[in-house]
Amino acid sequence: MLEIKNITKTFNAGTVNEKVALNNLNLTLKKGDFVTVIGGNGAGKSTMLNAIAGAWKPDSGSIVVDGIDITAMPEHKRAKFLGRVFQDPMMGTAADMQIDENLALAKRRGKSRSFKWWIKAEERGEYREMLKALDLGLEERLTTKVGLLSGGQRQAITLLMASLNEPKLLLLDEHTAALDPKTAAKVLEITDRIVEKNNLTTLMITHNMKDAIAHGNRLIMMHEGHVIVDVEGEEKKSLTVEDLMHLFVKQSGEEFANDRAVLS
């Protein structure tokens, strides 16, 4: 479903701030894979998602989604293959637009937009059903401006938006990191449900090792711009946080120094 081949990206090349963010990154996802991604600060996790989403072009390498080479495709064009949820709840929705309008924007992802009046009654009914399934009471608030909702509610709506229109790939960039623990758990539960229901191929970055182990069928750890640990299936299920830390030390040759990942 996704093939990342030898992607390299250097920021500020030739300056004192030169930073090799992705270093010969290779990753292949099968259809239906739910991969959790962990790694320290600057390991290249978000950079990898941005490369897939098309924020900029990689220096070398290629990205293929479902047989289509998207390496040079502009961001808004490849958007039809992708559903995205960001760390900042403000980023994934249009605050001054209504809940139904935000969903309608996502429903038209990858389709041409016409001069027709846009949201019809039956479409609204469809959204009401979807929101009902979230179990957050949002189905009664279709015409509420998204800006008035809490961070957790906004992330739930962004997730719903990302799952509309059958994306080939769902990209979750620490989408629970800005939420309180209880809300984060709820959003993760919704994530699991949506991924399972739509059978979405998913890449989920998290800084929480327990979450990384508990969710998905495969786990990768990144370090200095490439994948250093890749476990799946039964092996992943039996992992513990300690195992992960040992794996990190073994593979990277460095001490594990990310308190946040351990403590949270």
Binding site: G92, A94, W118
Partner: peptide
Amino acid sequence: TEVGASLRATGNNLNMSRAQG
């Protein structure tokens, strides 16, 4: 309209608009 709404979305959240194609 769909086009008018995409204009409003662009002014509201540029990144999100691109992410929605």
